[in-house]
Amino acid sequence: MEKSPSFDEGTVARFVERAEAVATKVTRVADGAAAEKLAAEMLAAEGSEHVGVVRVAKGIADTGTCVVVTDDEETRLKTMLPETTVFILKAEDIVPHLADIAPFLRSRQADGRVSYTSFISGPSRTADIERVSAIGVHGPLAVHVILQEG
């Protein structure tokens, strides 16, 4: 008998659509091993100077956002300095709406906790010259999300 998925396909499909709308590339894989394998290949192809691989805590479907725990500087810099960021996100961790992320944020900030949480929706961008959209200003030029279904 087939196991029922632990995520809502409608929510995941919306995440994919909205993430792609902000120039994020999404690849769906079956499980954790497949995700690790793909990430390792991407890292090996370009080298760690050019690719940062980071696990994502939560996804937000409505905005195609990856919510990343970046308390330590090293993780944070991996999402800032290299030209490419590779995120690994579990489909079951995607919440439908922006407002739904409040409990997660609160759990990270309550009781005197020190934290740095990054919401990342696509590569860095600007429209500061003649309102022409340009991708990759100070941050990454490309964002890949490896979406792990199992």
């Binding site: 909205r18 709308a21 902000v22 937000i60 409505d62 905005t63 195609g64 956002t65 308390d71 330590d72 500087e73 922006l98 944020l105 990270r108 900030q109 005197g112 906790r113 020190v114 934290s115 740095y116 949480t117 990054s118 919401f119 990342i120 929706s121 696509g122 590569p123 860095s124 961008r125 429209a127 941050g139």
Partner: peptide
């Protein structure tokens, strides 16, 4: 502001974290 659903980055900083 920019007709975006969300900007590329929204950063929540809570407290003085580690700094090398």
């Amino acid at each position: 502001a920019t007709s975006q659903r969300l900007t590329s980055y929204v950063t929540f900083i809570d407290g003085a974290g580690p700094c090398a």
